[in-house]
Design a protein around this nucleic acid. Structure first.
Length: 481
DNA sequence: AGGGTATTCAT
DNA sequence: TGAATACCC
């Protein structure tokens, strides 16, 4: 559009796409030559099914909005904050500013789609232009279809289909000069939103993280300079820095998978083809989960495989509490749960172990675990979290077979061979020799004494016995088949 | 992206 | 007798 066409402003809606680069809506607004009004809309009200943001993500959102706001300010623009129903907010802004164009990046969670579909209809009714753009996936969900027109329910064919797609679009640069709207617009303030945790101690351990677009790209650069070199071999090792840790940046849209995909083509990675390929496959899991969510709005509340609906879950609160607090008596499980609470994040391998433990050893409903993760993970993702839990539970798409029950002792020994991870997050076991580290209850009394451990006092006895819990789970699952 | 156990195989 | 293998859960 020519820059002279209209002095009327364009509204750019920000949701969880807190970035300037590869932001197609912002880019198009800027290209239009119109003055731009950037608005972050926090809408948990339009859709009755909207899921309120968890605590850890609220912490992240607070800091990420601060970062985005500052970057915008440096470019002469002001980020407006609004909370409430999207349509009402946009209507109000149009009335206030005379805006005749609204732009946003598409979302793929069903509640987001619902809100944006409603908005589009409202704008059409008002005769205001609306434009939506490809959002935070490599490919639009409707672009990948099985031969029979359905969506993929199995990962491997999904991966083949994705790998057979044309390269994802090129990322777009951050707009060079943002022509901002200079009228006064009432904005809410971050302080009003009370995003930071009420228990201030909680987020004290979130020191590994720097929310915001700049930090996201720094994280990617660090990963490509370092850990990706041994990604394929070490990605399952929670004691080693071998993963990208990009997930919280991705879920807040500070960086896009498209940017990452293209960054993986850097010449310096030429000798790491296997690692890059492995990482791309993990990116494809994220994509796969979003496809599942797109087609299954209740992915976090309903068994994907309905034959599990009759399954009888255990509701022992004391077991659930022990799990949440990292006091199950199984060191690798407890280390994971404490890493989660202390840092807002947990290594993926350990997520599978603790989830398997909750579901199979304790027979507690996967939804309860999913909710806890939703509240405590800085990367809590509507698609990955729900699909991941269902995968472990055996209720999900392409799920782990029901009889696959992780042995927390063997998993600890295999993936934390030196015990560094357990010793970091379960310090009361730090002096225990590796031989007993994942099964302290088998250590001779003298060894426990030497390590300063009193089972039942300084570290709990196992809350369930592995062998009998395993048998119980197999029996319970067999009944539902 | 597993575990447990019986059986076979290789010293 | 311990390491691979097979096979079921």
């Amino acid at each position: 559009m020519p820059t002279t066409e209209s002095g009327k402003p364009a509204i750019v809606l920000f949701r969880y796409d807190l970035r300037l680069a590869d932001n197609r809506a912002l880019h198009a607004a800027s290209e239009s030559g119109k003055p731009v009004i950037p608005v972050f809309v926090w809408d948990e009200q339009t859709s009755p099914h909207a899921r309120p943001l968890g605590g850890a993500r609220k912490w992240w959102l607070h800091h990420s909005l601060n970062a985005l706001s500052a970057t915008m300010k440096a470019r002469g623009a002001t980020l407006v904050l609004k909370r409430g129903k999207t349509e009402a907010i946009v209507d109000g802004l149009i009335d206030e500013t005379g805006a005749d164009l609204v732009l946003w990046n598409r979302r793929y969670d069903p509640q987001g789609v619902e809100v944006d579909t409603g908005l589009k209809a409202e704008l059409a009714r008002r005769n205001v232009m609306a434009e939506s753009f490809e959002g935070h996936l490599l490919h639009e969900p409707y672009a990948l279809r099985t031969a029979s027109g359905g969506y993929y329910r199995v990962y491997t064919p999904f991966w083949r289909a994705l790998a057979g797609q044309p390269e994802p679009r090129d990322p777009v640069a951050a707009p060079i000069g943002l022509k901002s709207w200079h009228g006064e617009i009432a904005s809410e303030t971050l302080d009003d939103w009370n995003l930071l945790p009420k228990h201030p101690d909680w987020s004290k351990g979130f020191t590994d993280w720097t929310p915001g677009e700049e930090a996201a790209h720094q994280r990617l650069a660090d990963f490509l300079d370092g850990a990706i070199g041994h990604y394929s071999r070490e990605r399952d090792r929670p004691d080693i820095e071998a993963t990208s840790r990009l997930s919280p940046h991705l879920v807040h849209g500070e960086i896009t998978p498209v940017q990452i995909w293209h960054a993986l083509k850097a010449p310096k990675l030429r000798d790491h083809g296997a690692d890059v390929a492995k990482f791309r496959r993990e990116m494809a899991w994220r994509e796969f989960c979003y496809h599942l969510l797109f087609h299954n709005p209740a992915l976090h509340t309903e068994n994907f495989n309905a034959s599990f609906n009759a399954f009888h879950w255990n509701d022992r609160q004391d077991h659930f509490d022990a799990w949440k607090q990292g006091k199950t008596g199984y060191p690798i499980v407890d280390a994971g749960m404490r890493q989660l609470w202390q840092t807002g994040w947990m290594h993926n391998r350990v997520r599978m172990i603790v989830a398997s433990f909750l579901i199979k050893h304790l027979l507690i409903d996967w939804r309860k675990g999913e909710e806890w993760f939703w509240d405590t993970l800085v990367d809590a993702d509507p698609a990955n979290n729900a699909a991941g839990w269902q995968w472990v539970a055996g209720t999900g798409a392409d799920a782990a077979p029901y009889f696959r029950i992780f042995n927390p002792i063997l998993q600890g020994e295999k993936f934390d061979p030196k015990g560094d991870y357990v010793r970091t997050f379960v310090p009361e076991l730090a002096a225990l020799p590796g031989k007993y580290l994942n099964q302290p209850w088998t250590a001779p009394q003298r060894v426990l004494d030497d390590a300063g451990i009193m089972l039942g006092e300084t570290y709990p006895h196992p809350i369930v016995d592995h062998r009998s819990a395993r048998r119980r789970a197999l029996g319970a699952y067999a009944e539902t088949r």
